[in-house]
Nucleic acid binder design. Structure first.
Length: 486
DNA sequence: ATGTCC
């Protein structure tokens, strides 16, 4: 049997791109890593595998704890991790959702071509930077009073439709239709709401960005046609999350777990993996609060998309509807959701934790909107600002292998600290413009250095593994044109 | 990721 050693962890090769940490000791399940040999070299460098093994200690974990091809070390649970736990005798773990609840990405298509845009790059990047609030701290597209924030938390994108920021068509092209009915705003703290109020419609910082891109490659013609994608087309990618509101919500519940469920916490190998027992009051309250934060993040991305439509209308002097600026899909990267999956031949309801992982349901799952019911859902995988991104569709093997999930990005290669030693923001920006015709505008040069293309793994390799495993199939590739960030 | 410390 082929094996690879990483410290005290031995990975056994199951088949191409599938590696297993066998169940032993206090583990409640085996763990699996989905990666090529090349990607394993990166994964082995940090605490990713230790955190993945720790995740198998969660009560009620089904099948395996799974690490996606882009996985890397996170808080308690790997970024790129999927863990499904029983909703009756299992648990729910804020650490396995992540601090940035419903960090996610959406793609908007247009009928513009790269030719239409050439010569307008500078004007467009400046106008987008001006119109879309970004960076750390407050300032959003709308200023929310106490009532508004409650409404957004309870109703998600339905609020945005009523307020004139979204169309019914936008709703129909969003995971969960942009709305979690299980949201319970009363379980989101006042402090979290106060932080969120000034950030409704704001990009934030770090790896969050808005990017205008052009489609460069089509891999599956029929699926691309269903998605409305073609070569040379201009599309817009928006990547952001729930800002201070989600972060505060995660913090609040981690603290409460320490106080109210110390016994379960003491049984886990890492305090950061904190979980509340299924059925407990705290599990119900966290789930309700997390769903509310999820709704907030969807509104956040919707308002940024609304502003983007206005900017395009201004720059190209055309109505955004004439430019057919339609939401392709909005996918969540950091969530837990009650879903029914087959485990050992039995249908069970599970909390599927996807932390830095994307839902990738194939054709036929009842959750899919009518537009994608026969083709599988769009999966959007952003690469770095110098590499571009991919559109995939949920693969037929995803339900068997990953509870219907795939990767969410390229995955970092080095820390932010190391990145700032290696790169200088202005140099990165100038080189991208001169060598690649990519126009970058950011609040902070440090952020550009931290997000330099060289700090990311090869997104092509991540997507190749997803495609070859059959969990997410390649549909199209894009390349950056304009990028704004915090 | 994040008013990068209550």
């Amino acid at each position: 049997m082929e094996t690879r050693e990483f410290g005290d962890i031995e990975l056994r090769r199951v088949r191409e791109h599938v590696w297993e940490i066998p169940q032993e000791g206090e583990m409640n399940a085996p763990a699996r890593v989905l990666a090529s040999e090349a990607l394993l070299d990166h994964i082995g460098d940090d605490k990713t595998l230790e955190q993945l093994r720790n995740a198998t200690h969660l009560p009620g974990i089904a099948n395996h704890a799974i690490c996606m091809p882009d996985g890397h070390q996170g808080y308690g649970f790997p970024v790129g991790g999927v863990g499904a736990t029983d909703t009756t005798d299992g648990c729910i773990s804020p650490g396995a959702v992540g601090y940035d609840i419903n960090c996610g990405v959406r793609m908007m298509t247009t009928n513009l071509t790269y030719e239409d845009l050439r010569g307008h790059e500078e004007e467009l990047v400046d106008a987008l930077f001006e119109a879309v609030p970004s960076g750390l701290g407050g300032g959003g597209v709308v200023k929310g009073d106490a009532e508004t924030i409650e409404d957004i938390l309870a109703r998600g994108m339905r609020w945005a439709v009523d307020a004139g920021y979204a169309t019914d068509d936008d709703l129909a092209h969003c995971e969960d239709e942009g709305f979690r009915d299980d949201a319970r705003p009363e379980f989101v703290s006042q402090k979290a709401k106060d932080r969120g109020r000034n950030q409704i419609g704001s990009l934030g910082s770090g790896n969050h960005f808005l990017e205008v891109q052009r489609v460069t490659d089509i891999y599956r013609d029929d699926v691309a046609e269903s998605f409305g994608l073609e070569a040379d087309q201009i599309v817009v990618l928006i990547h952001c999350g729930s800002r201070g509101l989600g972060h505060q919500t995660c913090t609040d519940y981690l603290r409460r777990i320490e106080k109210e469920h110390k016994d379960l916490l003491d049984d886990l190998p890492d305090k950061e993996l904190a979980a509340a027992p299924a059925g407990s009051e705290l599990a119900e309250e966290y789930y309700g609060a997390m769903c509310a934060a999820i709704n907030f993040a969807w509104v956040n991305r919707q308002l940024i998309m609304h502003r983007t439509r206005e900017v395009f209308a201004d720059v190209f002097d055309r109505d955004w509807r004439d430019m057919e600026m339609r939401l392709l899909y909005d996918v969540a990267h950091n969530i837990a959701k009650k879903e029914v999956h087959e485990v050992d031949g039995e249908e069970r309801e599970l909390y599927v934790h996807r932390k830095g992982a994307t839902r990738a349901f194939p054709a036929g799952r009842p959750e899919l909107p009518p537009a994608y019911a026969d083709v599988g859902q769009p999966v959007i995988i952003p690469g770095s600002m110098g590499a571009g991104s991919y559109v995939l569709r949920g693969g037929d093997r995803s339900l068997d292998l990953t509870f219907g999930s795939t990767a969410h990005g390229a995955g970092r290669l080095m820390s932010r600290t190391k990145a700032k030693q290696e790169y200088w923001g202005e140099t990165v920006r100038d080189e991208l413009r001169e060598q690649e015709k990519i126009y970058v505008k950011a609040q902070s040069g440090a952020t550009v250095a931290e997000e330099a293309p060289g700090v990311y793994k090869d997104v092509d390799e991540v997507v190749r593994v997803s495609d070859e495993l059959g969990i997410g199939d390649k549909v199209a590739r894009t390349f950056p044109v304009c990028n704004i960030k915090g």
